[in-house]
Nucleic acid binder design. Structure first.
Lengths: 205, 205
DNA sequence: GGGAAAAGCGGAGGGGCCTCCGCCAATTCG
DNA sequence: CGAATTGGCGGAGGCCCCTCCGCTTTTCCC
């Protein structure tokens, strides 16, 4: 629709460039307000906060909330996408410091730690992730890209298998988060991540 | 329809022994009716059928449905527990025919095939499984028991690792089902199951 | 057999989710 | 400078979930 300027490659802006439509300013303030309120709400209440409350507290109508964020998951993603992005971005640094297999495990641990602090979020995202089509194509792509980078390096150094689709690893990882979501066993999650790493190691024939 | 022999210890019967309370007969008929209708409904409509419809079609009030099955997941479990049980029970036969690692993969495949035909079910169980406390302790226990049996055998023959908790394998497996639930990639699920098996093979040092 | 008590039934009702549509404010053009 | 147009707002309303409570049916005890 709107012709986005190809300014920064590889970093698609969340919002369409800058003020081309002044009226947007109002809309944008609403949007950011909603995100801020939602962040607070999600942090406080562990799970399902009535969206109506968020709308009211942000001083907008429920209709406006739904225009900006058509589904509950969309709102959640908006709230956490920056944080998730930071995690995805942290992969290269880990790759510089550690061998790929260790880096991958560390990176997964980092991801897991984040997810652990946002159990409420996971509870909400669960449906969206699992039923697939609804949500998070962007975030998920970045996660997969991070994994792919690590896998590629690992393939070169021989510490990780070459014949694994990064997408599969993402799916597996999310699966672990999904199914450990509420069973509250922090070490179990760690063990499962270890298992994933084991699966990704080349079998020395 | 009532095969409940008190034979095997450790296998708690789903229904409390047999007819001690005749009145129960009426109640039981309602219950079974609900299950039958629900089975048909779940098979037909891929996902969320209004529980009210099921109640109406079964000729009972919504209140009765909720008394018998306090949550949606409880109803789903009731519908599929016998089938799931059959899968769990099929493990020993596979163990007789194949080496443990192969048997485990085959068994997982069987489970997966079942889940695949019941995507609607998974969609519903998702919440229950993932948010843990709500549902399916019984069924899950049987699944874990089946896995444990295979793992034990595999440990003896040396084709599977000894240091893995069966519960972890269950969690992992459910995680795969959870996160592949709707992304409709039948082969991907297979690849992920292969990865699990790889993770469970002893690393030949 | 008859009456009391228990067991079970069913639907009304309150709450949240999401959609749809009429109204206001900013923008643009004559 | 004023009027048509467009972008955006907000809440009323329909749907489903689940709970709660008065009513019917069955059983038990004399």
């Amino acid at each position: 629709m709107s012709p986005s300027e190809p300014a920064s490659p590889g970093v698609p802006a969340d919002q369409p460039a800058d003020a081309e439509r002044p009226l947007r300013a109002h809309a944008r303030r609403n949007r950011e307000n909603l995100i801020a309120v939602a962040r607070a709400a999600f942090a406080a209440a562990d799970d399902t906060v009535p969206l109506e409350n968020i709308a009211r507290e942000a001083g907008v109508g429920i209709g406006t909330l739904y225009r900006h964020f058509p589904t509950r998951e969309a709102l959640v993603e908006a709230v956490y996408s920056t944080e998730l992005d930071a995690i995805a971005t942290s992969a290269p640094a880990l790759l510089d410091q550690f061998p790929p297999d260790v880096a991958l495990r560390a990176w997964m641990g980092r991801y897991e730690a984040f997810v652990a602090t946002k159990r409420g979020m996971v509870d909400i995202l669960r449906a969206g992730w699992a039923s697939g089509k609804i949500a998070t194509p962007t975030t998920r792509k970045r996660i997969t890209a991070a994994i792919e980078a690590i896998l590629t390096k690992g393939t070169e150094t021989g510490s990780l298998r070459a014949d694994v689709d990064p997408e599969d690893v993402t799916t597996m990882l999310l699966g672990v988060f999904l199914s450990t979501a509420a069973s509250d066993t922090p070490e179990q999650t760690g063990r499962l991540l270890d298992l994933i790493i084991d699966a990704l190691r080349p079998k020395n024939e």
